[in-house]
Structures are given as structure tokens and as C-alpha cells.
Design a protein around this nucleic acid. Structure first.
Lengths: 355, 355
DNA sequence: CTGTTAGCGCTTTCAA
DNA sequence: TTGAAAGCGCTAACAG
């Protein structure tokens, strides 16, 4: 075979609906119906048509369909955390809810420039989406406005500390941080550091919660707050713990913005010979799979991440059917899971000693 | 304001190209050009048009554009591992390469039924994609055929053990497993277990590599192979290690299909009071962030995951421009990173004892 | 149950 | 540099 003969194998002549119609001896619309709404076509015809479709390898063109029906069947998911471990469970929830429908999901990951959220959002809008799931980073009035003008239902997820433009599912991050900080105080820790990984709105809410509780006890100290605006990671956790102990050698516990930070802190403590929980307490956030498996196991705050995703998709799907609803806010709640890494009181019990 | 007045706020009258054209006193095509190819419109007009576009909040309709131009600008990424930690780095690579272009990425996660890969693939095809990045699970001739008939360039990623339909980037998983197994043997381990997490083609290749090396030493034993076909996780690692020791109490090391399994195995060993690396050696796979931070640190096999993603996207973009190329296979190589969890010989050195 | 007609919003092609 | 005409492939709305 002569080289070049097969050039442009991509873009081979495309089989269209009317090609199929012609071959099956019916009209285009009948083929269309046989494909989308088989019950509206007589069994005999239906069978013939489907056979021809199969034979010719016909594949519907979604762009044409979307244009003609004004329905793209697309759900857009916009989050800066697309490539983060914490988002995986959310994704599974979304995918699971959407799977049985004929909707599809398109993810987008805004970059770092401030304008990007708006651009990606507009981009989604340009596709006539059926709905959008959005994870915001900052409270930005302009973005809020954009969301309010959205041409489709929008669900904001993860944080529910503010009234959403339309719908929101998540938890109250401030309360979660308060609970974690109080737990550490109850276990007898005093110089509690905060190891963070960003200044997005959720991190700020957690900082607020931590700060409020610490201040109420007269224990707040800015030197205890360590944060870097980047992805969290186990390595970063080790690094921040190290910095915490440099800045505040008498620190006796850390509340970490995420379990990967907590795990890193744990390893670093072990490396330094600090006993956990006796010498140092660690509380994580997210309750990743490994928190309960680690040795010692890590106290953490469990977020219903899968449920948030599932519910968000569910709300979107329902909103698509009905008309517009009033702003809806769903707080799915969190749960503090006490484990060994903060069990200082229990650790002291066996030896019979008192604090 | 009367309730109901604002019903159907979604689907508000959409601003189209001709609306803008009318308002700007030009023809639709000129607006189109001003937007896509500003240089082809006189500066004066261009400015006027862009102002009107801004004022009216015009957003182009991608479906219409795709239909008219037969170019969707879409890259489809199909992988069963979308919601896995290992894929995150790949994703970052893809996103980074695509960011500067005007292409968009759409991810899809095939379910578990065998048919699903084909269905999702066809679905991508129906969108006139500019290219597809595909991570296969099994060697399936039917799928292979489908890929060969693809209406666009396709890059298969992760494994390069077979000749791809068109292009492939990845590493040789069999060789990687051989290297890991040999490393464990060199450190003096003999009863080396294999902790796996699936029977996809890559896992099978790794099993082959492990088996070949073990058999060459006369050490292979089916009882040492533990695998469950599900997501890998730290919890699963702990569980599999436990099962390994039940099945083979004299096992002295484990090669894990992924670092999360390795981390779980590490924790479980610590819980059982096994000293690492003296009593038991652990080698992971993937070299996740925490492998080097763990205490003791975990030996692992580093895959250039980010580079695989970046390169795949790059090949796709280049292929889009030029015509069809002959099958291309890029092996990006792996790297064994020896760390404390297998450093048995070094651990014995200080005490001066001999094996 | 099936077909006809019209047009979705944009771009291509050709002409001015 | 700008515009007019035609049509991408499909589906809505109505008719038969």
C-alpha cells in the first residue's frame, strides 16, 4: 500500500443521520427518534434502523444535537482543587449520582490568576450547560454577580458560611475548626499551633474558628499560625511542624488544615523523638482513609465529601426539571473523630499519674 | 415584584452574534472575525465591536461554533483512575500543557462494566474531539479496533508494553517490577510477598515482572501473591499485609503495587511490632509525596507521572497540526528510589553483625 | 406512528 | 477589509 494513501484517516467521511435515513428508507427524524425515544417508533422500523445504524457505524454529533435542542446535557464542575486528594471523594459522589442519567460532566481547574474563575465560568456558560457545580476560592462580589446571572442552575459546594447565589451544599468550616481546637484543649494541650495550606475562604473560616476558641482561653498567639499558600502535602506538613517548633519550642499540639499535613507532622514528630500523644498532639482535617490506619491513628474531622458531591449533583438534576427555587443551603455537618494522636488523657490513665 | 415574574431566569433571552452585529451596525461574520481573528478587522471596527460585545454580555455558543467549523477544540481524557491519587499528577501535566492553547479538556471515568470503555470512547467521538488520551484497563481487541478507527489522534498512556494503535507514552511496568523485586533480593529478603490492587493490564505486567524474578531464584510461591480488585488504599495495604502474614508467617518483605498499600503495610508492621527494615522490608510503587517523608521512609519506584501527562498532551497537540504519523511509542522510564524501608544491609552495618 | 418544514448560532466560501 | 449566501447535523413543531 502506498504511503500517504491513508492520510487523513482521521476525518474520514462522517456518517450522518440522513445517510442512515436514506439507507434505511425512512426520514431523518425517524432515525433520530429511534435513537433517542425508541418507544415512539414501531418495533419493526426500530429494529431495521438500529441495525443500519450499527452497520454504518453512525455516531450522533453532539454539537448538532446541542444546537438544535438547546440542551447540551453537560454539567460543569469548576474547582481549584480538581487535582487535590480531598476532591477525589467529591468527584466520586458527583459521578455516582450522574451515572444513571444521560448527563455528562466536564471538569475545569481554574489557574491562579484572579480572573480565571470568571473566564472558566463564562466558558461553561458558552456551552449551554444543564448545571454548574462550583467551588469558590474567595468571596468576590463580581463572581457572585456572575453566578447570579448564570444561564443554568448553580450549586456552590464545600462551604456554607454564606448565603449562596442560588444553592449550596457543604459544612460550616468555622464550627469544624472550633470543635477541633476545643478537643485539643480538652485533652490538655495549650500551645496549639495551626498548620495551614492556603488563604482561600474555607481556610480563613477555619482560622477564624481556631482563633476564636484560642482567644477565649487567652491562648492565641500569631506565632502559632503557620501557613503557606500552596497545595497541602505530607512533605509540607513535616516542614511546617518543623517551623512551628522553631518559632515556638513549647508548642504541644497542632491542628492541621488537612490530614496530609497531619501525617507529615506525625512523621516529623517521630523523627524528632516526640511521643504522640503524650508530648505532642495532632489533629487533622478531612479524615482521609489513612487517618484511622496510621500508627498512631490520627484524630481528624470527617467531612461528608462524597455526600457533598452526590447531593450537589442531585440538587442540580432536580433544579433542571423544576423552575427556579429560592436560595437553598444544605449543611451536611462534620464529625470529630478522636483517635490516638490526641488521646493524651487516656494515655496517662494506665500509668495512674495525674496531670 | 410579583413572584413568578422571574421564573425561567435561566434561559433568559440569549444574545447571539447577529444581535451584536445589528447593534454594532455590521454583519455577523465581521463580529465573528473580530472575536476570533482580530487582525482581519480594521482597528476602528474591531474596537466598536468588542465594546458592544462587552456591553451586551455576548457569549459565543460553542455548540454552534463546533457544528459550523467541525472543530470542537476538545481533548477527551478517558481513564478508570480519574478518581485515584496516582492520576492527579498526570492530570496536572495534561492541564499544564493544554493551558496556553485554546483547547479544553473533558474527563471521563468509565464504570466497571466491560462495555463502558467502548461507550465512553464512542461518546467522545461523537463530539468531534481534537484528540483523546486513553488509559486502558485490559487488552481488548475490540477496543483496539475502536481506537484504530478513531476520528482523531489518540494517545494511550501509562503502559508501553505493547505497540499502540497510534501513540503511547508511559513506562514498562514489567521492568519496573523486576527492578523492585531484585532490589529486595539484593537486600537479603527472600520470602517476598506481592500486595496488589487489581487485575488490570498494568498490574498484570507488574505481576509478570515479580514472578519472573522470583522464579529465576526458585522463590516463587503463589501464596505470596495477595490481590483484591478494587481501589488501592492505605487501609487495604494494612489488610493485605495482615493476610500475607497469615498465609505465610515467614514472609520477610512486600512489594506493593502502590505506595498507599506500602504505607498501610508499614503502619500494620509497626502495630505488630515488626522492625523495618530489619524484620521486614517494604517496597512501594509510584513514589508518592509521602514515600520520602514517612518514618521510616519508603523505598519506591518513581514514575514520571506528570511528564507522562504533559507529553501525552503535547503529542496530541502536535498530531493535530500535522497529518497522521506512524505508531509512536515513548518510554519515559522509571527510577527505583531506595530508602530506609528496605535498607536492611545498611541497618546491619552499624552493629557490625553479619547476615 | 411517520414525515415535512424550518431553523438552532455560527462559520465557510465566495464575491465585492 | 467587509458582506451575502449557504449549510454544518440535528431536532422542535406541526401535520398527516
Amino acid at each position: 500500500m502506498i504511503p500517504g494513501t491513508r492520510r487523513r484517516r482521521h476525518r474520514q467521511e462522517k456518517v450522518t443521520l440522513s445517510d442512515v435515513a436514506l439507507a434505511a428508507g425512512v426520514s431523518a427524524i425517524t432515525v433520530s427518534r429511534a435513537l433517542r425515544d425508541p418507544e415512539k417508533v414501531s418495533p419493526a422500523l426500530r429494529e431495521t434502523i438500529l441495525r443500519v445504524v450499527e452497520q454504518m457505524g453512525y455516531v450522533p454529533d453532539m454539537a448538532a444535537r446541542a444546537l438544535a435542542s438547546k440542551d447540551s446535557g453537560l454539567i460543569g464542575v469548576l474547582t481549584p482543587g480538581l487535582t487535590s486528594y480531598a476532591f477525589i471523594a467529591v468527584m466520586r459522589g458527583i459521578e455516582d449520582r450522574v451515572r444513571a442519567t444521560d448527563l455528562r460532566i466536564q471538569y475545569a481547574n481554574p489557574g491562579n490568576d484572579g480572573e480565571d474563575d470568571a473566564r472558566k465560568l463564562r466558558f461553561f456558560f458558552s456551552q449551554n450547560p444543564a448545571g454548574i457545580i462550583y467551588v469558590g476560592r474567595h468571596h468576590d462580589p463580581a463572581l457572585d454577580d456572575l453566578l447570579k446571572r448564570a444561564p443554568c442552575p448553580v450549586v456552590e459546594i464545600m462551604d456554607v458560611s454564606r448565603t449562596p447565589a442560588e444553592m449550596a451544599v457543604g459544612i460550616d468550616h468555622r464550627m469544624a475548626a472550633e470543635a477541633a481546637t476545643r478537643h485539643l484543649l480538652n485533652e490538655g494541650y495549650r500551645r496549639i499551633g495551626l498548620l495551614g495550606g492556603g488563604w482561600d475562604s474555607r481556610s480563613l473560616r477555619r482560622l477564624e474558628g481556631y482563633k476564636a476558641v484560642m482567644e477565649a482561653e487567652g491562648l492565641f498567639d500569631q506565632a502559632l499560625v503557620l501557613s503557606i499558600d500552596s497545595y497541602t502535602s505530607v512533605g509540607l506538613g513535616a516542614h511546617l511542624l518543623d517551623r512551628l517548633l522553631s518559632a515556638c519550642p513549647e508548642a504541644d499540639a497542632a491542628f492541621c488544615h488537612s490530614d496530609d499535613l497531619a501525617l507529615g507532622a506525625l512523621f516529623e514528630c517521630q523523627r524528632k523523638g516526640l511521643r504522640i500523644p503524650q508530648d505532642f498532639g495532632i489533629c487533622g482535617f478531612n479524615d482521609f482513609d489513612y487517618a484511622g490506619v496510621a500508627y498512631p491513628s490520627l484524630t481528624s474531622v470527617r467531612l461528608p465529601r462524597y455526600e457533598i458531591g452526590y447531593r450537589a449533583a442531585d440538587m442540580l438534576i432536580r433544579a433542571t426539571g423544576g423552575g427556579r427555587q429560592p436560595p437553598t443551603l444544605v449543611d451536611l455537618g462534620f464529625q470529630l473523630i478522636p483517635r490516638q494522636s490526641t488521646a493524651r488523657i487516656a494515655a496517662q490513665q494506665p500509668s495512674g499519674s495525674l496531670a
